[in-house]
Amino acid sequence: MKYYLCKFVPPRADFLTTMSADELTWMGQHGVFLNDLLAKNVIVAHGPVIDENGGYGVSLYQIADQEDITSFTSQDPIVKNGVGHYEHYVMLHLASRP
C-alpha cells in the first residue's frame, strides 16, 4: 500500500467565503466524490482546514502500490472544473482506527 496526504489548494485565499454559484455546486460534488472514496476505503479521512491565510482541504489516501494518486485527485469535480489543484505528500505509513 501507498499513503498520501493530499492538500486541496483553492484558487484564491478567500475561496471559502467568495464561491460563485458554480463553485458552490462543484464543491458539493467534491464532497460527494470524497465521501464515495471514503466509503470505498480509498480515503481514510478528509475535511476542510481553516487557516488565517486561507482555507484548504486535506485528505488522507491509502492506495494500492500499482495505483497513481493523480488518477484519483484529477477526477475530483472541483479539479475537473479548473478550480484549484492538489498537492500530494507521500507518507511512510498511516495508522488509523479499524
Score class of each variant (00 low, 15 high):
1 M>A: 06
2 K>W: 05
3 Y>M: 01
3 Y>Q: 05
4 Y>A: 02
6 C>E: 00
7 K>W: 10
10 P>G: 08
10 P>S: 09
11 P>L: 09
11 P>I: 13
14 D>T: 12
15 F>V: 14
17 T>P: 05
17 T>K: 15
17 T>N: 15
17 T>I: 15
19 M>S: 13
19 M>D: 14
21 A>R: 13
21 A>S: 13
21 A>F: 11
22 D>I: 11
22 D>Y: 12
23 E>Q: 14
24 L>V: 15
25 T>V: 13
25 T>N: 10
25 T>W: 09
26 W>Q: 10
26 W>L: 09
26 W>H: 11
27 M>I: 14
27 M>T: 15
27 M>N: 13
29 Q>A: 05
31 G>R: 13
32 V>Y: 03
32 V>N: 04
33 F>A: 03
35 N>E: 11
35 N>H: 07
36 D>Y: 04
36 D>C: 00
36 D>P: 00
37 L>E: 01
37 L>N: 03
37 L>A: 01
38 L>V: 07
39 A>W: 05
40 K>F: 03
40 K>M: 06
42 V>H: 03
43 I>T: 09
44 V>C: 00
45 A>G: 06
46 H>G: 09
47 G>H: 13
48 P>M: 13
48 P>D: 12
49 V>F: 13
50 I>S: 15
53 N>C: 08
53 N>M: 11
54 G>K: 09
55 G>N: 13
57 G>H: 05
57 G>V: 05
57 G>C: 04
57 G>I: 05
59 S>D: 04
60 L>M: 06
61 Y>P: 00
61 Y>L: 04
63 I>H: 00
63 I>Y: 02
63 I>L: 03
64 A>I: 04
66 Q>G: 05
67 E>K: 10
68 D>Y: 03
68 D>V: 09
70 T>E: 07
71 S>K: 01
71 S>N: 12
71 S>T: 07
71 S>A: 07
72 F>K: 02
72 F>P: 05
74 S>P: 01
74 S>E: 08
75 Q>C: 00
75 Q>K: 06
76 D>R: 04
76 D>F: 03
77 P>H: 02
77 P>G: 00
78 I>H: 04
79 V>S: 04
79 V>A: 06
80 K>R: 09
82 G>N: 08
83 V>H: 11
85 H>K: 12
86 Y>C: 02
86 Y>P: 01
86 Y>G: 02
87 E>T: 09
87 E>Q: 11
88 H>W: 01
88 H>V: 02
89 Y>A: 08
90 V>H: 06
93 H>P: 00
93 H>K: 05
94 L>C: 06
94 L>R: 03
95 A>H: 08
95 A>D: 09
95 A>P: 02
97 R>S: 08
98 P>A: 08
